[in-house]
Nucleic acid binder design. Sequence first.
DNA 1: AAGCTATACAACCGCACTACA
DNA 2: ATGTAGTGCGGTTGTATAGCT
Length: 326
Amino acid sequence: MGRSPCCDESGLKKGPWTPEEDQKLIYHIRKHGHGSWRALPKQAGLNRCGKSCRLRWTNYLRPDIKRGNFTAEEEQTIINLHSLLGNKWSSIAGHLPGRTDNEIKNYWNTHIRKKLMQMGIDPVTHRPRTDHLNVLAALPQLLAAANFNNLLNLNQNIQLDATSVAKAQLLHSMIQVLSNNNNASSSLETHHTNNNNLFGQSSFLENLPSIGENLYDQTQSLSHIVNQPPLDSFTSPIRVVAHQDYQNSIPPLISASPDDESKQTQMMAKNKEVLRHTDHTSNPSSTSTFTQDHQPWCDVIDDEASDSYWKDIIEQTCSETWPFRE
DNA sequence: AAGCTATACAACCGCACTACA
DNA sequence: ATGTAGTGCGGTTGTATAGCT
C-alpha cells in the first residue's frame, strides 16, 4: 500500500524534456516496449525517473496522441461530460480519442472555464452564477425580455425547441428570485437609490410586481405545456428539483436546502447511470450522439448569439456578480 | 525597447489503489 | 497480513511566450 518512492532519488533530471531525451525514450519503447517503467530509464540511457518517463510518453510522445486545437465538438463534449462527471479528467479523456487527461484538464482550466465564467456559468456547478443583486442588475434586460410574447406565443408554435425552453427557464428562475426577494424591498430600494439610472424609469419599482407576474404566468404556462422539466434536469444549470415541484411552484434558482441537494444528488446518480449505459464506449460516434442529446443550456444560449438581449442578460449578470473574475 | 503581467501548457507532486511476493 | 512495486489520477507548479504599459 506504500507510495512509490521512484521520484525520491536525487540526481535525476527534472524539468522540460529535450528532443534528445524524447528520441531516446521513443526509440527504446518502440524497440522494447515500456515494460517496467522503473527499469526503463536505465535501459534507455535516460537520467530520469520512471514516472517522469511514463508521463512524458503517455501525455506527449505516444503516437496515437492527437495534437492541435480542440474542435468545437470536442469542447462541447468536455463541457457535457464535466457537468456529469466533474473533474474526472481521465474519464472525460476516455470519450475523446487521442486526447489525454492532462491536456483536457489544461484546456479546461485555461479556456473552457474562463468561457463559462464569462457567460455567467459556474464552471464547477454548471449553474448560472447569479444572486438576487445580479438579477436586479440585469433588470433592464429583463424588461426588454418582457417582450417575450414572441417567444412564448404558444398558439402559433406549440413545438418548443430547447432554446426557447432554456430562455423561459432562465427568466422563470430570475423571476422567482425577484418574487422571493420582493419583500426585501429595502435592498431593492437601496440599489435603486444608489443607481438612479439602473432601471431607466422611475416607475419601475411600482411596475415590478405586474411585470413579474406576467412573466411568471408565461413561463409557468410554458412548463405545463412542455409537460416535462424544460431541459434535461441535470444538464441544465438551472436545475429543476422535481417535475411535480416544477409544476406547482417556481423551482429554485440554486438549491439551498439539504433536501434539494439530496434530490439533485439522486438526479445526478440517475444521469450518471444513463451515461454509463448509453455512452460507455470511447467511440466518437457515441460521443457525438451524447453531445447532441445533452446540449447544455449555456450552449443553447450561445447558439442563439443573434438574440443579443439574452447574451446581455448573461454577461451583465456575470459582470455584476463577479467583479473579481478574469 | 525594456520591464511587467497574464496566459498556456508541460511537467511534477503526492495520494490512492491494485497486484503480487 | 504486510510491505513494495507499479500505476492512475487530480491538483499544483514552473517556464516560455505573448501582450501590455
